[in-house]
Design a protein around this nucleic acid. Sequence first.
DNA 1: GTCTATAAGATGATAGAC
DNA 2: GTCTATCATCTTATAGAC
Lengths: 190, 190
Amino acid sequence: MNDSETVTHILDLAQELVQKRGYNGFSYRDLSEQIGIKTSSIHYHFPSKGDLGRALVVRYRASFQTAFVQIDAHEDDLRMKLRLYVELFRQTLEDEGKVCLCGMLSTDYQTLPPPVSEEVQRFFVENEAWLTRVLEEGQRAHIFRQDIDAAKEAAALLAGLEGAMMVARAFGDVERFTQTSSVLLAALEA
Amino acid sequence: MNDSETVTHILDLAQELVQKRGYNGFSYRDLSEQIGIKTSSIHYHFPSKGDLGRALVVRYRASFQTAFVQIDAHEDDLRMKLRLYVELFRQTLEDEGKVCLCGMLSTDYQTLPPPVSEEVQRFFVENEAWLTRVLEEGQRAHIFRQDIDAAKEAAALLAGLEGAMMVARAFGDVERFTQTSSVLLAALEA
DNA sequence: GTCTATAAGATGATAGAC
DNA sequence: GTCTATCATCTTATAGAC
């Protein structure tokens, strides 16, 4: 499954639709109409909807891994690293009220084909792992509170951001997300 | 729309299905089969799916208002009030991996009929209002941090709990929710 | 790779008998 | 209030021609 132009087009649009409407909120027909290609052609690239869903999360995970490498390479300030991370989500929300792909899929969780749900889990594991590393480093540098468990704090931060995206979108108000993310980050300060 | 036995049965099952599978993850047929009544009979009580969805959130909001009254009446300790509130969500999660009805609906937000989405907004407003009151009272009693904005902190707590339910369920691990909720509550301590 | 044609089943919804 | 019957539409998916 390499990425021809068509495949990329399908993935881009499908991701957008999942982020806006959820896994059960879009169909091959939606993709068909907006791409200008028949549904059977989409099935050629992604035989089942589960195949498409899985490809979506795999690519999304990879984009976050890339972001982690970028942030680690170009930013030393640990507080700024977290702010850049939060910024990834804020931009998504600003972009027509989309929320995190995996936050979205986690609500559809019980209806997902297992190959998809496994990838969603992996996303959370990887994100928490990176956040934990940043927090631990920050603790060693006496930037973040010493009396916290970095891993648990990382999980809480991620959960908080995911929830904040959902609530903020329900109000059509990105500022709500920004405020909640500030509160979550402030809780880490020494 | 009073609550005959049948109506209550429909609402109970529909709520369970939304909390597990989302608004677009259940159908009148699902209700029909599990209740032992034809879909046309369900349409008699709830002409459109939007009518059903709206009734669901109205009832859910009312159940939280009742919980608020109960907590305020029987518990003076402000920390305990918050713990009892968190416990409402934890029990939901423990009950077969259901998540907050409105957390669920907030991801389906862009596909909801307006009457439903308006009720979802109201749920968040009401919950934040109660939490804000508890936090403000706790600040006056010097139990919670003085350097926080109660309203913003309330929003962050609610968002954090909503997100924590989603993530915890994706791992099939209620303990994950418990840990994150502890982190969120700890951040309020003076 | 994309198309036409088609399938089997699901979905929200309505008309009218009992 | 519940049933049968029926609806148009949508959904995922496949077979086979170009």
